[in-house]
Every structure is written in structure tokens, then in C-alpha cells.
Design a protein around this nucleic acid. Structure first.
Lengths: 239, 239
DNA sequence: TGTTTGTGCTGGTCGGCCCAGATTTCCGCG
DNA sequence: CGCGGAAATCTGGGCCGACCAGCACAAACA
């Protein structure tokens, strides 16, 4: 058995988490105004600097709206939140997405990566192919290495699919994938656990074949199919 | 003539902006390492607390990679950046996107909003329709009011299209739209300038009709068409 | 009653302290 | 002279309590 490193949380992290809980659990409702930094300082026995930094982080995450000299109110994070808010929300839920979130995520994946796949299949250079092949070669090495390093493979799969988006010549798609990064990594780890490392690498190779063949619709359908297989498999597991 | 409110920037904001300029203008190149926090503190006459918070924000935006006790280097923000990075990049460019960025943006819009439109057309409740109608009614009021308030109309159009994403029951699409917010607002302002306020509201109504009729493909094609009209119109203008 | 002044609140900023790891310097030994 | 290791120095990270300036509201004044 392995005991991982024990990370010591900082005061700021503890404070931010505490506040997130208060908000996500509904004890602090949207529109409620927070106690002043000084009041929080007294309650928590933490210095004002840390309180201030923590509140700034919460604002940046979309949970608060801070106005200088006026105070902080809980923001309508469901309406104005960004991906970062969602990441915090999922972490709050123990790292697990709800079923609906999973389905939403896969739908978004089809929308974005599907477009990229189509574009790349229709129009690509030899260098694009070579780049993706390079990543696949590294994945093969990893498989041949014998040691099971799922995290490294997941990272490689992430880079591969981001590579598809980068090479599709759309400047926004890679950024969106980066935004999704924590969620996507979680997805790949799960996919490796479900279908095995080889199957995932094999599927990645299949995409490359379809791209090279210029089969845009085929690549798109392949993506759709693998997504629904994944979702079905998850549903089976639940039973 | 109107003079808007004057927002007082905080020192941290000023510092972050300055650093962003240095990076985006190329004075600091990817891979360059930054002076130490204490050196920056001396140069800028700003306290260590603020410097530290500013650098942390820049890291979070994807501009820096900070390693504890080793320093900060300029990150390859084109590869690892997020939407926030892009927003900073566009702001640095005076709010103007390059032609390629515009095309990328519209393609992303078709991918995301197109999916939402399809879903909503296939499956919607009366309440969904009523919600969107409410927003359209407010747009009509704005048009009838006579005063030209393009910003308010753009805001309304943003909310309307975000509404389509919210009501599509996909939890990720609205978040993505929020992420794109500054870019989308810029887009609507431009669209209003090009085609007029009435035409934009009319188009919004057309989407609602198609959704109500359950015509998923029609709605999707309508979106594709209006996107290509917009792009053509921009191209014409360039000449 | 209308205006001014004061006071206390707010978030924002400051610089100093300590910590632990990384890096460099330098001294003594072989 | 060369090399290894101890020690000094530098890095970012974290925390603290004091201070600053702007704003709101109430008390004091005309």
C-alpha cells in the first residue's frame, strides 16, 4: 500500500474552502453580503492580509463580487460563472461529476472536438500528421515500457487531442480544451480504467487514420460512437 | 457627450497590466525568466504582497510559470493559455481580433451554439419559450424607446443567446459563453452597427420560431447562414 | 430645513518576519 | 591543484498587524 505525500493546506486555502462550502451548501445565498474583512479576521483569527487574498481568489473564481470600500456579495455564480467555477464546484463534490454534468461534458466534447476533427480531416499537411504520429509513438513507448503509468498516458492523450484542435487551425479550440483540462484528465483516467490503456491508444490511432484518409464524416461518427460507448459503460457500472 | 464613471485601478491591476504589455509586446519573450519578486518590488516601489499577488494572477491567466524558490518564466501562452489569456491578448490589441481569430470565433460559435440550438429545438418546454420571449419583448421595448442604446441591446442579445444555451439543458454551454463574454459583446455591437438593431432582433425572433416549430436542422442552418453573411460583410468592408 | 463637517467604516497597501528549498560560495582536505 | 561538502545567500511562500484613502452616514451647524 502506498501513502501519498501529505500536503499541508495553507491558511488561505482553508479559508477559501470554508467560504466555498458556505456558498455551495446554500448557507450563504446569492446576493447575501459578506461580513467585512475585519469581522472575518476576528471570527477566523486569521490576519486580514490572508482574508483579503482569499476573498480576491473567490472573486476570481466567480463566487463573489467585490467592490472597493463597499464589501463583498455572493455572486450569481450559476449565471455568471466560468469553467473555473465549475471546476471548484466539481471538486467540492469530491471530484465527481453528476450524471448530467458528464453528459453535458461529452456533448460539449463532440461539439468542439468534432468540429476540429472535421476540419483537420478536410485539410491537413504532412507536418500535422507527423506531429500527431510523434505523440502516438510516445504513447507506444509508454505501453511497451511495461510499467503502468496511467497518469502519464492520460497526459499524452490530452496532448494528442489538444493537438488535433491546435492543428485544426482554429485558435479557440485549444484554449477551450485547456479550460476543460482538469475534467478531461479525469475523463481519460476513467477511460483507461474502463477500456484499458491499449484500447485507448488504438482508438487514438484510428482517428489519425481517418484524418489521413480525409474521411471527415467518418472521424466525426467515430467520435460520436466512442462517446456513447463510454456513457453506456458508465451507466452499466452504476447498476 | 457622456463621460462614464472613472474606475480607479488598483496597484495590483496596474502591475498586472504592465507585465501583460511587456509579454504581449514581445519585450519579454516566451521562456525568459522574470526578475525575482524582491527585485520587482524595488523597481516598481510596490510592496511584496502586491507583487506576489500580481504574479500569481498572471500565472493563473497562463502568462507565467512559477516554480517555488526558482522564479517565474514567461509561459508559452499560445499553447497553454485559456480564454482569459485570449481576452487579455485581444484587449492588448485594442479590442480588435485578427481575421483568423474572427473566423475561429465564428466556427466555435457554430459548434457550441449550434449544438444548443439543435437540442433546444428537439426538446423544449413552454417555459423555455416563455423565457426567451420575455427577453425578446424587452428588446422590442428597447427598439420602441427610440433612444439608440446599442450597448443595452447587445447585452440583451448576449443574454438571449446564452438563454438558448442555458435552456438546452447542457450545463457547460452557458459557462463557455460566459468565458467568451467580452468577445461576444464586441461581436454584437459590430453586428448591430452592420445590419441595424431591428435586423438583429428580427433574426433572434426567427430562431425562436424555428425552435418552437421543432426544426432543429433549420435552426442550425439559419445560424450557419447568418455567420457566413456576417463574415462576408466584414470582408466587403475591408476592401 | 439645508448644508457642512466629522467620524467610523470599507477594501487596498505596506513592509517586516520567518520558513524551507535551491544555488552559489568558499574553505579545508586529499 | 582539484574536489567535496559545509555554510552563506538567494528564491518564492506564508503570515502578520499597522496604515492609507475613499465613501457613507450622522451629528453639528447655519
Amino acid at each position: 500500500m502506498q501513502i501519498g505525500v501529505i500536503e499541508v493546506p495553507t491558511l488561505k486555502e482553508l479559508f477559501v474552502r470554508r467560504m466555498e462550502e458556505q456558498i455551495l451548501s446554500g448557507k450563504l445565498k446569492v446576493g447575501d453580503s459578506l461580513p467585512s474583512e475585519r469581522q472575518l479576521q476576528e471570527e477566523t483569527k486569521i490576519s486580514k492580509t490572508v482574508i483579503h487574498a482569499g476573498l480576491a481568489e473567490l472573486e476570481q473564481k466567480g463566487f463573489l463580487e467585490i467592490t472597493p470600500r463597499r464589501g463583498a456579495v455572493v455572486a450569481n455564480y450559476e449565471e455568471t460563472g466560468t469553467m473555473e467555477t465549475l471546476n471548484a464546484l466539481i471538486r467540492h463534490n469530491g471530484g465527481n461529476m453528476t450524471k448530467k454534468q458528464t453528459h453535458s461534458f461529452m456533448e460539449a466534447r463532440i461539439a468542439i472536438e468534432g468540429s476540429a476533427l472535421r476540419r483537420l480531416a478536410e485539410k491537413h499537411t504532412d507536418e500535422d500528421i507527423a506531429y500527431l504520429e510523434g505523440l502516438l509513438a510516445r504513447a507506444d513507448e509508454l505501453l511497451a515500457g511495461g510499467e503502468k503509468d496511467d497518469a502519464a498516458l492520460a497526459e499524452l492523450l490530452f496532448r494528442y487531442h489538444r493537438g488535433i484542435c491546435v492543428r485544426s487551425r482554429n485558435e479557440f479550440f485549444p484554449l477551450l480544451l485547456n479550460e476543460f483540462r482538469p475534467i478531461i484528465m479525469e475523463f481519460w483516467l476513467r477511460s483507461i480504467a474502463l477500456f484499458g490503456a491499449e484500447a485507448n491508444v488504438h482508438l487514438a490511432k484510428r482517428y489519425l487514420e481517418l484524418i489521413r484518409a480525409g474521411d471527415a464524416e467518418g472521424a466525426f461518427r467515430r467520435l460520436q460512437r466512442s462517446v456513447s460507448e463510454y456513457l453506456n459503460c458508465l451507466d452499466e457500472q452504476d447498476r
